[in-house]
């Protein structure tokens, strides 16, 4: 059984996006190219294209999120889809309704796509397995497993600045263990052929088997960012900052906080990324976050184009199946 298989239809078109793993370099590149096409849309005066007119997209967020949910919503609206925002964390589950019940109820409302965020690894995969065949599922973050659209928008941002991936040295700093973002970035970078991926952090935040993901493990920040083309800082969740994983936010910053001085060993044209929101003074200095090498706000804008690309491709795959299901619209 393979996580990747159920993401593609028989002809290899993208049906669901659950994880970057198992998707080919060609497919990832096609998504990035499509996103490039959509950046024009997001900058024009009338920011809409009719690709998904008549489609209903439900944002199913079992965990709170501002950035991801908002950019998914904007992406869907720019494709002319109707959007339902469901903040499930505060509604059904507290009434004892199971995930499956919620899903089937929404299906009964003829939803064409679910954008799912959930605290459990594998949740999006489960929903994709259970959903009706005409419904697409996009993973907006499941537990520690994957956050593929974040990984892709980061690749999009890197490609815009670096042109390609072949010679890149990428350093990913912070809490790898709990990070779905890191897993998706690593999978994408490996598929796209990055020269070297380093993960940097204390041993409590790096899985024992990290190297099996295709990365080099490093515990020293200076060594880790040396000659790097891209430095990605991960968010450190507040609950990790004390207890047995880390002694304090202070010591973490002393060892792994990115400062201009520490960044000086990276390549002069290195870019600095962060999936947000930033803990200033923990993961990095404001000087770095707001500095010339930071592309953090670009990542946010790029998120819209990349999510438009993913939504359009999955809906496009649905339309290839022909006007069979109710509400199908061939754009």
């Amino acid at each position: 059984m393979n996580t990747a298989n159920i993401q593609l239809d028989d002809a290899g078109h993208l049906k669901h996006l659950l994880t970057v793993e198992g998707l080919s370099r060609e497919l990832l590149t096609a998504i990035l190219d499509q996103a490039e096409g959509f950046t024009g849309v997001t900058q024009q005066a009338v920011k809409k294209v009719p690709l998904c007119r008549g489609k209903v997209i439900a944002n199913l967020f079992f965990e709170t999120s501002t950035r991801t949910r908002t950019t998914f919503e904007l992406a869907a609206k720019r494709l002319s889809a109707d959007v339902l925002n469901l903040n499930i964390a505060a509604s059904s589950t507290s009434k004892g309704e199971t995930l499956l019940d919620t899903l089937h109820n929404l299906e009964a409302m003829h939803v064409d796509m679910f954008v799912v965020r959930h605290a459990a690894s594998g949740a999006a995969h489960f929903i994709a397995e259970q959903a009706a065949p005409h419904v697409s599922v996009i993973n907006a973050g499941d537990g520690r497993h994957a956050h593929p659209t974040q990984g892709l928008l980061d690749m999009f941002t890197i490609r815009r600045h670096k042109g390609g991936f072949e010679h890149l040295r990428v350093a990913i700093v912070g809490d790898i263990l709990h990070s779905r973002v890191a897993r998706s970035q690593i999978a994408a970078l490996n598929t796209l052929g990055a020269a070297e991926i380093r993960v940097i952090g204390p041993r409590t935040l790096i899985p024992d088997a990290a190297e099996s993901l295709g990365v080099r493990v490093c515990h020293d920040l200076r060594e880790g960012v040396r000659d790097a083309d891209v430095v990605i800082m991960l968010r450190l969740q507040r609950e990790r900052m004390s207890g047995a994983l880390l002694p304090s936010a202070h010591e973490y910053y002393q060892l792994y906080g990115l400062t201009e001085e520490r960044l000086s060993t990276a390549r002069p044209d290195a870019i600095v990324m962060h999936p947000g929101p930033i803990n200033r003074g923990v993961e990095m200095d404001s000087q770095v976050a707001d500095g010339p090498r930071s592309v953090i706000l670009e990542q946010v804008s790029n998120g819209i184009a990349v999510r438009m690309a993913v939504i359009a491709m999955c809906i496009g795959t649905q339309n290839l199946r022909g006007p069979g299901g109710e509400g199908t619209y061939d754009a």
């Binding site: 996580t3 793993e21 497993h145 994957a146 024992d208």
Partner: peptide
Amino acid sequence: HQGAVSTRLGLPGIP
């Protein structure tokens, strides 16, 4: 099991 597969799938491990 805390190992390569739990790391890949992001499942909390049991060492």
